[in-house]
Computed example of a mutant assay.
Amino acid sequence: MSRLEIVLASSSKIRRDIISNYDVDVIFYNPEINEEQLKQDNLNLNPRSLAALLAKSKALSLADKFSEKFIIGCDQICIFNGKIMSKPLNEDKAISNLKKLSGNTHNLFGAYCVTKGNEIIIEHQIECEMEMRNLTDSEIEEYVALDKPLESCGAYKFEANGFKLFKSVIGSLEAINGLPFADLKELIDAKI
């Protein structure tokens, strides 16, 4: 039996690291969508539906280039008090986001879409529950300086030092980090 051939439609380093731990042939390729425009065009969607649309759009954006391979599109959002907490992009916003999350529970929602031959064959969602410890302002500032989580939804890098910020988590490490590939591989294997 030949090895599974996957295209990961993502620029995320942690997602690339996760899938590299598996015995699959993988091509890393940035999705060819304007994510910000898609978000603006779909303001009417609830956060979970928007994440699912983005995952689908990312996978389908590469369907013509890689029509014979399984393409995985992903999107993960941080939901706090029913709203999406966007990537902070700067240190002040990261500190502000972490102050809001401190002592509270939020959810990481991951949407995953697998296509082959321009056809959607799998749509999968996983939600993780994350309870953050009560953090002091200095703990937050030191953490942001250490991990620089400016491109991370929730303003933390769980895979680096972010895990130390939490009191409890419900969800697999892969799902928290944005690519539950063990689950997806099982679903793909069932389609072969």
Rank of each mutant, 00 (worst) to 15 (best):
I121V: 05
V114P: 15
I140C: 04
R133I: 00
S138R: 10
N81V: 00
C113Y: 02
K148Y: 02
F109S: 08
E91I: 00
I121M: 13
S86Q: 11
N107P: 15
M132N: 04
L98H: 08
T115Y: 04
I122M: 08
G103W: 02
K116T: 02
A145V: 02
T105S: 13
G117T: 00
H106I: 00
V144Y: 07
N81C: 13
I79Q: 12
E123Q: 09
E123Y: 04
I121R: 12
Y112V: 01
G110W: 05
E119M: 12
L89S: 14
L108V: 02
L135I: 00
N118D: 10
N81A: 12
E127A: 14
C113N: 04
M132C: 06
K148T: 00
Q125D: 14
G82Q: 08
Q125V: 05
K99R: 15
H106N: 09
K99G: 10
I95T: 05
G110Q: 03
T115K: 13
K100T: 00
A145D: 09
M132D: 07
P149M: 00
I95Q: 14
H124E: 09
K83I: 02
G82M: 07
E129P: 15
D92N: 15
C128V: 01
E127G: 15
Y112T: 00
G103M: 04
H124L: 09
D147T: 01
S86C: 11
P88W: 01
Y143A: 03
K83E: 13
G117Q: 08
L108K: 06
S138D: 11
L146I: 01
E127M: 15
L101A: 06
T136E: 11
K148H: 04
N107R: 12
L101R: 04
E91R: 05
K100S: 12
Y143W: 03
L146H: 10
M132T: 01
S102A: 05
G103D: 01
Y143N: 03
G110S: 09
S138Y: 09
S96K: 13
G82Y: 05
A111V: 03
H124A: 05
L98R: 10
K93Q: 14
K83F: 09
I121E: 13
E129W: 11
N81Q: 13
F80Q: 09
P88V: 00
K83R: 14
K100P: 11
N118P: 15
H124K: 07
H124C: 12
E151M: 14
S138V: 05
D137I: 02
L146P: 12
C128H: 07
K116E: 08
Y112Q: 05
N107L: 11
N134C: 13
I140K: 08
K116F: 06
